[in-house]
């Protein structure tokens, strides 16, 4: 496929579960086990699974925020996992991340403007008044005010903080953003607004998303394709419409049936997945 932006193949990451007294791993857990997928330019791949399934580790390994044990990741033809420090740093302008909890993902001591400006300076995209203008523009693009740049994170609500985190990611004009449970910690009304913002930004900027989530209902609207992860493996990957209408794997079915229906008149049949 010519328009593939990200390609992940046989990605595996092991954690040391126990270590010897000299620090050598004695027992390992495969958090990510032979995971492969492609993401086409402009699409949203939703990576869905429950806690501990390895979805966050996968996202971080792609960005090389952790060093995976084995496997390959290419971004626009560049081999991400073998890059030296400086080329990797430069590549990070093109791939960004938004974390789950906006209360911990913003430096509490740093003013919002400086947070958003950090990437602009790191990549020398603009300086002085031009950088200020760019910060202001980005803040407005995510639905905040330019004057918010002078404030500290604690002056904002959770939803607004998540918008700041999105502004920080967008300020360097990336092509690809990992949204690591980016709306999971938000109240439903705020969640809907932030989801709408993310979709708007994707249309405006032609962004490619890896949307990591634990709730299939949340990502249905935004996902082009969905990959379902269970115990470190992708058990099913399909176009969103197909996956939601006719799930193939037992775990996907269980996950879909577990989403509570916000309607007391509907009683859904629960499907239990026994782990095989």
């Amino acid at each position: 496929m010519s328009d593939t932006l990200i390609s992940v193949s046989h990605l595996t990451h092991e954690f040391a579960a126990r270590r010897t007294m000299f620090g050598a791993p004695q027992a390992t857990i495969r958090a990510v086990n032979d995971v492969s997928f492609d993401i086409a330019r402009g699409e949203t791949l939703a990576l869905v699974g429950e806690s501990g399934c390895g979805k966050t580790t996968t996202g971080r390994a792609i960005l090389r925020l952790i060093e995976p044990t084995s496997g390959h990741v290419t971004f626009d033809g560049i081999d991400v996992l073998t890059l030296q420090r400086e080329p990797l740093r430069r590549l990070r302008r093109r791939m960004q991340v938004v974390f789950q909890d906006p209360h911990t993902s913003l430096d509490p001591r740093m003013r919002v403007g400086r947070t958003v400006r950090e990437g602009i300076e790191a990549h020398e995209l603009a300086e002085g008044a031009e950088a200020d203008a760019r910060v202001a523009r980005t803040l407005e693009e995510v639905g905040l005010r330019a004057s918010d740049a002078a404030k500290l994170p604690h002056e904002f609500s959770g939803g607004q903080r998540q918008r700041i985190a999105i502004a920080r990611a967008l300020a360097v004009e990336p092509e690809f953003v990992v949204l690591d449970e980016a709306v999971s910690a938000l109240d439903v009304t705020v969640q809907a607004q932030v989801l709408a913002l993310l979709m708007q930004l994707q249309r405006d900027r032609g962004l490619t998303y890896l949307f990591i989530a634990h709730n299939l209902a949340v990502v249905e609207r935004i996902a082009t394709r969905v990959a379902v992860m269970y115990r470190g493996r992708i058990v099913e990957i399909a176009a969103a419409a197909a996956l939601y209408s006719s799930p193939q794997h037992g775990y996907t079915k269980a996950l879909l049936s577990a989403v509570p229906v916000p309607d007391p008149r509907v009683k859904k049949k629960r499907i239990v997945w026994d782990g095989n």
Partner: peptide, 14 residues
Amino acid sequence: RDYVLASRATGTPE
């Protein structure tokens, strides 16, 4: 901390 990871992910030198 997430904000340190985020800063690194932004491409800020170590």
